[in-house]
Amino acid sequence: MQKIYPNAEAALDGLLFDGMTICAGGFGLCGIPERLVDAIQASGAKDLTVASNNAGIDNEGLGKLLRTRQIRKMISSYVGENKEFERQYLAGELEVEFCPQGTLAERCRAGGAGIPGFYTKTGVGTQVAEGKEHKEFDGETYILERGIRADLSIIKGWKADEAGNLIFRKTARNFNQPMATAGKVCVAEVEEIVPVGSLDPDCVHLPSIYVKRLILGAPYDKKIEFRLTRQRESA
């Protein structure tokens, strides 16, 4: 079975439709599947529901799909860096479901693991708990949160082998790992594709079973939102 596709457009062929739900990896602009986002933008697929921790910034990441009005609803924990998002949200053009970050990660992990719901203390006594089932365990109150299953997952990895075994790099792993499992189909873009046998099986972060389609997305021009440095002490 050939998992490697020549480009993002080919890898998404037949997978996109209006009104679909997409799980997207990344944290801020770190580890975002930018080639796949570009291809979704070019496809014109609309009325999308996107589960992603953030919503990109203006003209970067999911910000591109917001600008073209292809997203109807976002499920996110933090959207602070996006002016177009703010405009659409305040104008009532964009629906937003704010979800605590850990709850979002677990909803996707659970969805991908065949768990339709789980109880958590996160959000008890807050707006997040409104309308949700409450249950007491060992004297503490928990709320029921639903697992997320999506039509499609799009993720960004560092290296993959030709079979689709994948590893991430540093904090670019973030939501990519749980999001990969939550979609009926996961399409991954990576910086390097290596022959089968070149990755240590003990060091695979995402086993090949989750990666249905794969593209080489390089070269990347990775963005930094807040560049902070320290001075070298002079010798």
């Binding site: 996110s76 924990s77 949200y89 937003v96 970050q101 709850t103 996160t122 959000g123």
Partner: peptide, 12 residues
Amino acid sequence: IKGMGGAMDLVA
């Protein structure tokens, strides 16, 4: 509203 990020998970 910018969102709660991880704050609700942390305090819980």
